[in-house]
Computed example of a mutant assay.
Amino acid sequence: MTRPDRDVMVCRDCCCGSTSKHPATDHDAQRTSLEATAGGGVRVRVVECLDECDRSNVVLVRDFTLGRRPVDTWLGDVHGDDATRAVVDWVAVGGPVPDDLAGHVFPRRRVR
């Protein structure tokens, strides 16, 4: 198996991706939309926890095309169709973070 150009990771087994924390967010539809970008160099993975629960709904995009080491972009508060569509459109083409997602980007805190 070859490495994808981009990995998209979403929390679903902890509080971030749960309907109990975010009942208005359709987590299944969001996952389905993201998975529709799979193939073509994009892999979507559901993870138990990305350890950034205070910024949930968290999506981590790891880009392997920008050099020897992957570049991680952390996105928080990804709720609703507009935010999901912006993530889907961006990961499908790659490149810099588009303006409509800039407000969702946050720096990863250091985990000890």
Rank of each mutant, 00 (worst) to 15 (best):
L75F: 07
P96K: 02
W90Q: 03
D99A: 14
R12I: 03
M1R: 15
G41E: 04
S56E: 07
R6W: 00
V88D: 00
D77W: 13
R69H: 07
T32V: 13
D89E: 15
D82M: 10
G17Y: 05
V8Y: 02
P4K: 06
R68Q: 14
G80I: 04
P70G: 01
V8I: 09
A24N: 12
W74V: 03
G67V: 00
L75A: 08
H22Q: 11
T84N: 09
W74Y: 12
D81T: 14
V88Y: 01
T19S: 15
T73C: 02
D63Q: 02
A29Q: 06
V91P: 00
R109K: 13
W74S: 04
R3Y: 13
G76F: 02
V46A: 11
R6H: 00
D63H: 03
R45E: 12
V111G: 08
G67T: 00
D13C: 12
D77Y: 12
C49W: 06
D82G: 12
H104E: 03
C11H: 01
V71R: 15
V59M: 01
R6V: 04
R12W: 06
R108G: 08
V44K: 05
G76M: 04
C53S: 03
V91D: 02
D99R: 11
L50I: 06
K21E: 14
R110S: 13
C53P: 03
V87W: 00
